[in-house]
């Protein structure tokens, strides 16, 4: 396959960026999208150019490192597929492909296609956990958890933290990311004691980080490589609403 790429190049966070055209010749349809970029980079380096920087690591669709807006779609055209699992057989010979970084106020560009997603870590730090200090746990079977409950929690817990939901959202909202964690932990008995304060703190943190609000466009669930549903956002909103109407001390008591 022969392809024409238009790639966002930006030398650093404060440098101006622009789209640059590259010809990608002799690409195998069995290559992954990132392997195609590897080939382009090898050729760039052989001619003394600087390679295109992009984030990637596991290349199995689970670490959440890879990103890329491909022809304006986060993670490219295939539903439920991260960029590293997208293969060139999804494109046709002669295609023009536009490749850009995640674009969101809360995700500043570091270089080329690499963005800073540390804001997502700070949302988790604000409350996306169960406080269970090492050594304090009861037996794993001490609390029975219905299979349906744990399966639904797992659907949300699959989030890989890639940030596609933010990139896809016209508002640059991290609601799907945040709601996935709130849903995962909020469904399980272990997550109940901190449930309301978790929702309040994580949502507040999302605002502080500069993510937009959710107006239910639904673009996030289309882009999500784990196909996490926006039903989780409904749950987040419910928990957040309850938390905001409950005084802090009482909220703690109530969620007990």
């Amino acid at each position: 396959m022969n392809l024409t790429l238009h790639v966002w190049r930006q030398a650093g966070p404060d440098a101006p960026g622009r789209m640059v055209r590259y010809e990608a010749a002799d690409i195998s349809p069995d290559m992954s999208f990132l392997e195609m970029l590897d080939v382009v980079n090898e050729r760039l380096m052989q001619t003394g150019d600087s390679p295109i920087a992009f984030d990637h690591d596991c290349r199995e669709g689970i670490c959440g490192s890879c990103s890329l807006m491909i022809n304006g779609v986060a993670h490219g055209p295939n539903p439920g597929t991260a960029t590293c699992q997208l293969h060139m057989r999804s494109f046709a010979d002669g295609d023009e492909i536009h490749i850009e970084p995640w674009r969101a106020r809360a995700f500043p560009v570091v270089r080329d296609l690499v963005v800073d997603r540390a804001a997502l870590d700070r949302i988790i730090a604000a409350g996306g956990f169960v406080s269970a200090a090492t050594g304090s746990a009861p037996d794993g079977n001490a609390t029975l958890i219905p299979k349906d409950t744990v399966d639904t929690a797992m659907d949300a817990a699959q989030c890989i933290g890639c940030g596609a939901c933010v990139a896809a959202c016209p508002n640059g909202s991290a609601s799907l990311f945040t709601a996935a964690k709130i849903t995962h932990l909020g469904l399980l008995p272990q997550g109940q004691p901190e449930r309301l304060q978790r929702a309040r703190r994580m949502v507040e943190r999302m605002d502080i980080e500069g993510f937009g609000g959710c107006t239910l466009y639904g673009e996030c669930q289309e882009a999500c490589p784990k196909m996490i549903s926006i039903d989780t956002i409904t749950r987040m909103n419910r928990d957040f609403l309850r938390a905001s109407m409950t005084p802090v001390r009482a909220a703690v008591a109530e969620s007990d």
Partner: peptide, 22 residues
Amino acid sequence: VEIIDQCVAQGVPFAREYGGLL
């Protein structure tokens, strides 16, 4: 043995049987 307990306490959604056991 303790690891499983620790992870369950953190909210790791291990697969469960219909009766709710791991």
